[in-house]
Simulated assay, not measured.
Amino acid sequence: MSRHFYSCPLRWSDMDAFGHVNNAVFISYLEEARIDFMFRLAPGDGSPSFSGGSVVARHEIDYKRPLVHRHEPVTIESWVTKINAASLTIAYEIKDEGQVYVRASTVVVPYDLAAGRPRRITEEERMYLLKYLDDDATGTNKSAEDAEDKDALAA
């Protein structure tokens, strides 16, 4: 399985009164990474894939550590955990240098803007997404994640 890597700069305005990146800002970070990932297939080679539109059906976010402003960007890794006929699930980790700040997932539904309704994933899109499909299709390594959570709580 491949992962998509997106380098996301932090802005001073992303911080809240407590001195760390506001929880709502992480949704924007995920959006930037998701758009970069999904539109890699479409515009450059003339393919209409994903360019017709998509909607977010669901977000899940686990905040692991506070992220404070700095000049270096964070890395957002994205991969696919599920492909259905008319939706897909993208998983993410926002991290740097071994620190995971956020683990998240988004259910995305391809959307036909002209018809005003959801549409099925095309074969071309499916082939692209399969390159990023998680090998065990669970999205994360639960034992490693659980151990990290215990370490973070103990600190």
Rank of each mutant, 00 (worst) to 15 (best):
M1W: 05
R3L: 14
R3Q: 15
F5H: 14
Y6W: 14
S7N: 03
L10W: 07
R11M: 08
S13M: 11
H20P: 00
V21Q: 02
V25E: 03
V25L: 05
F26D: 03
Y29N: 01
E32H: 10
D36I: 04
F39D: 05
R40G: 10
A42H: 01
G46T: 07
P48S: 06
F50C: 06
F50E: 08
S54E: 00
V55R: 12
V55E: 08
V55T: 12
V55A: 12
H59V: 10
I61S: 03
K64T: 07
R65P: 01
P73W: 01
V74F: 14
T81H: 05
K82S: 09
K82W: 07
A86Q: 12
L88C: 14
E93P: 00
D96S: 09
E97S: 11
V100E: 01
V102A: 02
T106W: 02
V107Q: 04
V108R: 01
V109C: 03
Y111P: 00
D112P: 03
L113K: 09
L113A: 14
A114I: 13
A114H: 15
A115E: 09
G116Q: 11
R117L: 06
P118I: 09
R120C: 05
T122N: 04
E123S: 05
E124M: 01
E125I: 00
Y128L: 02
L129W: 13
L129M: 13
L129V: 09
K131S: 04
K131I: 00
D134Q: 07
D136L: 09
D146K: 07
A147R: 04
D149V: 15
D151N: 03
A152H: 13
A154C: 10
